[in-house]
Write a protein that binds this DNA or RNA. Structure first.
Lengths: 100, 100
DNA sequence: TTGTCAGGCAAGTCAGCGCTTGCCTATGGT
DNA sequence: ACCATAGGCAAGCGCTGACTTGCCTGACAA
């Protein structure tokens, strides 16, 4: 459970995918491929992106819905809440610990 | 920078170390080793834990201070704030997207 | 000085992960 | 029927990462 979440976040490309879905949720695999290669100069096979999406889905960060031959991918940031719940982040207003 | 953070969080043992430091900050390497093997039945070499601490320190999640031959490790959760800043987490009160 | 304790450095091993390649399924258009 | 499109499955490869082992440094005590 938590394993899947952190493993999903561990990869750079997957984080870029999350960025893209944050920008516009509900994209198809091909759309995501296109945007990655355009905006980030990432030349990657479709399979690679597909596998990344599977990992993100296993972590609950991405939810999918099928419509005909299209599969749309939606972002779900809810699992991220567990992180700051596990290790409470001190309020920025009282932050003096890392002003270096 | 972000790479180091997520890489640090990716490992199960490192997350346990963060848990221990959340419980009691300012422990030495040997104390952390002892607690991991006691509370979590983790039999691991001292070096392994030491290397984990180095990774956590590179991520800014752990800060260290030397006193004589002791080196104390303190938790710093500030870097975690970047996560929910990058992918804003919807407020739980308006959460209807993942009640499944 | 000698011994012990806390910690660090470096090389080597082994498993897991990211990615590719090749082939397959299924939906929709003509 | 045919073909193109959107996506999936599975085997294989290379590289990174976790862990061990062995040896070394530095601080305190006798």
């Amino acid at each position: 459970m938590a394993d899947d979440l952190f493993k999903a976040l561990a990869d750079h490309t997957r984080r870029l995918i999350l960025d893209e879905l944050t920008d516009t949720s509900g994209q198809t695999l091909f759309e995501i491929c296109a945007r990655l290669s355009m905006k980030h100069r990432l030349s990657m096979s479709r399979q690679a992106v597909s596998q990344h999406l599977a990992v993100l889905e296993a972590a609950g960060l991405v939810e999918t819905r099928r419509e005909g031959r299209y599969k749309f991918h939606d972002l779900n940031t809810a699992p991220l809440r567990e992180i700051t719940r596990r290790w409470p982040v001190s309020d920025p207003s009282e932050a003096q610990e890392s002003t270096s």
